[in-house]
């Protein structure tokens, strides 16, 4: 079994070898490490992408907009993902970001996960029929099972999920009531000796 350290270093070097700068290659190294740690096929997708890239042109999306469309080629997942990560603070207000023809979108995924941590919001990443819920770069929930390589997402979208409770106020109150069973009712004498007792707040 390869260690994550080996995976990161080798992915970084390979990325430099295919033409990315060292700074970009460092990002790819970290991302592939993350995918493999979460049990997603990072190495498989990266090697396939680098092989295809020799023959096929991919477009570098440098400025991300609400709708990102392309006529001829596919978007490069690495440069597009990095642009998304770098520009995340200005993209947040756009609500939902869409990409058409995103090549090897699993390589884009770690950038979304890291962006979720930066802005402190969960992000929903949809790749055609596959969905990924990115939780602050701590965990990834997905319905993607078994599929090793995704060579293209004809439509990819990222939604910013507002920080809100996953339960109703009623459910919360029920739970809180149960938790109250751990509290002790104070006697009058205890109340008299508690912090601030005996003083006026105007002294």
């Amino acid at each position: 079994m390869k260690s994550l350290s080996e995976i990161e270093t080798t992915s970084k070097r390979a990325s430099k070898a295919v033409g990315y700068s060292w700074g970009v290659s460092e990002e790819v190294g970290k991302n592939i490490r993350m995918l493999e740690m979460f049990g997603l096929p990072g190495i498989k997708n990266l090697i396939e992408y680098y092989n295809i890239k020799k023959e096929k042109k991919f477009e570098n999306l440098k400025l991300v907009n609400k709708e990102n469309k392309i006529k001829t080629y596919q978007f490069c997942p690495i440069i597009s993902g990095m642009s998304f990560l770098d520009q995340i603070r200005s993209l947040e207000s756009l609500g939902e970001i869409k990409f058409e023809k995103l090549g090897y979108p699993l390589l884009f995924l770690p950038f979304v996960s890291r962006a979720s941590e930066i802005i402190g919001k969960r992000l929903m990443f949809k790749l055609d029929e596959n969905q990924f819920l990115l939780n602050f770069n701590i965990s990834i929930f997905s319905n993607l099972l078994k599929k090793d390589i995704i060579d293209i997402a004809n439509l990819a979208s990222i939604s910013f999920l507002e920080n809100s409770d996953s339960f109703s106020e009623k459910e919360w109150n029920q739970l809180y009531k149960i938790s109250e069973e751990t509290f002790v009712k104070e006697s009058e004498s205890l109340k008299k000796g508690a912090a601030g007792a005996g003083l006026t707040d105007n002294d």
Binding site: S21, W22, G23, V24, M82, S83, D86, R89
Partner: peptide
Amino acid sequence: TIDKFLVNNNHLRHVVR
């Protein structure tokens, strides 16, 4: 901002970091 700077200067990303 640095995100705009990096759009055309990603070759310097390692030293920006």
